[in-house]
């Protein structure tokens, strides 16, 4: 297995606050890695750094061996890293189909000319975009397809919005997919189903997955490795069993029931 993502001594400060401090981290191709940690540990900041939405104050991020520090988010996505957002951010007034079609932007290339003259290339690409979109949506069963395709994303339930966000990220044809609390706000039945789907993201689609999650059942069921962050620093890494029994991790979570902290992660965003 080759290194897909390597992170070296990554730090970022927001006006004196060390949101992340000397973080070293790596993901191998085909892995599913979970990032856990109490609220405000810097997990979402970590994702923002990888996806190019925040620039690090020090350190390096390498994707497939090349540094991606200083790239715009769209360039990072074009290189093959897609993400979802903790507080679901869909294009609420575009249809479900359009949401997934638009995220194939960086994989397609037809410009104004094709659209204006309806060139065969343009038509072919539109068909491909649509087919790929339907294929991605079909991954989640019947709930995002059929009559749903033409509905605006704003009518979806919370759980379906989360699913659509994952679909949108999948449609960018990434190699690495970053899921920010994919099961937050779902009931146990839905969480279990989505856990299965995350496993299939690797087996069927070949994605490497990095996931921030508070639901320890999900983390246990699906991750190869778990990394625990606290105050912007990694305090433990290894298999789920190792990390979950690590006294430092227990201390970091102490007095804070895991079930509760899933709902808000305010300080980190």
């Amino acid at each position: 297995m080759s290194r897909l993502l390597e992170i070296e001594d990554l730090s970022v400060t927001f006006g004196g606050l060390h949101a992340l401090n000397n973080l070293n981290f790596h993901v191998d191709e085909g892995e599913i890695v979970s990032v856990i940690g109490p609220n405000g540990a810097g997990k979402t900041t970590f994702f923002n750094l990888i996806s190019g939405m925040v620039n690090p104050s020090a350190g390096d991020i390498r994707f497939k061996g090349d540094s991606i520090v200083g790239f715009d988010p769209n360039q990072v996505t074009a290189l093959g890293i897609a993400r979802t957002f903790q507080n679901v951010r869909l294009f609420a007034n575009m249809t479900i189909l359009e949401n997934v079609m638009v995220s194939q932007h960086c994989r397609t290339k037809q410009g104004l000319f094709g659209a204006l003259f309806q060139t065969p290339g343009f038509k072919k690409e539109e068909v491909e975009i649509r087919e790929h979109a339907e294929k991605v949506l079909g991954f989640f069963g019947s709930r995002l397809v059929g009559y749903r395709l033409e509905q605006p994303a704003s009518v979806l339930s919370y759980a379906n919005r989360r699913r659509l966000e994952i679909a949108r990220a999948m449609a960018t044809k990434p190699e690495l997919i970053l899921l920010d609390e994919p099961v937050a706000g779902m009931n146990p039945k839905e969480s279990a189903e989505l856990t299965g789907l995350i496993g299939r993201l690797r087996s069927e689609w070949g994605f490497t997955v990095v996931m921030i999650e508070h639901d320890m059942n999900v983390v246990r069921d699906v991750s190869d490795r778990v990394v625990c962050l606290d105050h912007g620093e990694p305090i433990a890494a290894g298999s789920f069993e190792e990390v979950s029994t690590n006294p430092e991790v227990v201390e970091a979570y102490l007095g804070r029931p895991i079930e509760k902290s899933r709902e808000t992660d305010g300080a980190a965003t």
Binding site: D66, G70, F71, D72
Partner: peptide
């Protein structure tokens, strides 16, 4: 757009 996709010039 093509120019922006190449990695030269660091984004």
């Amino acid at each position: 757009t093509a120019a922006t996709r190449s990695k030269t010039g660091k984004g």
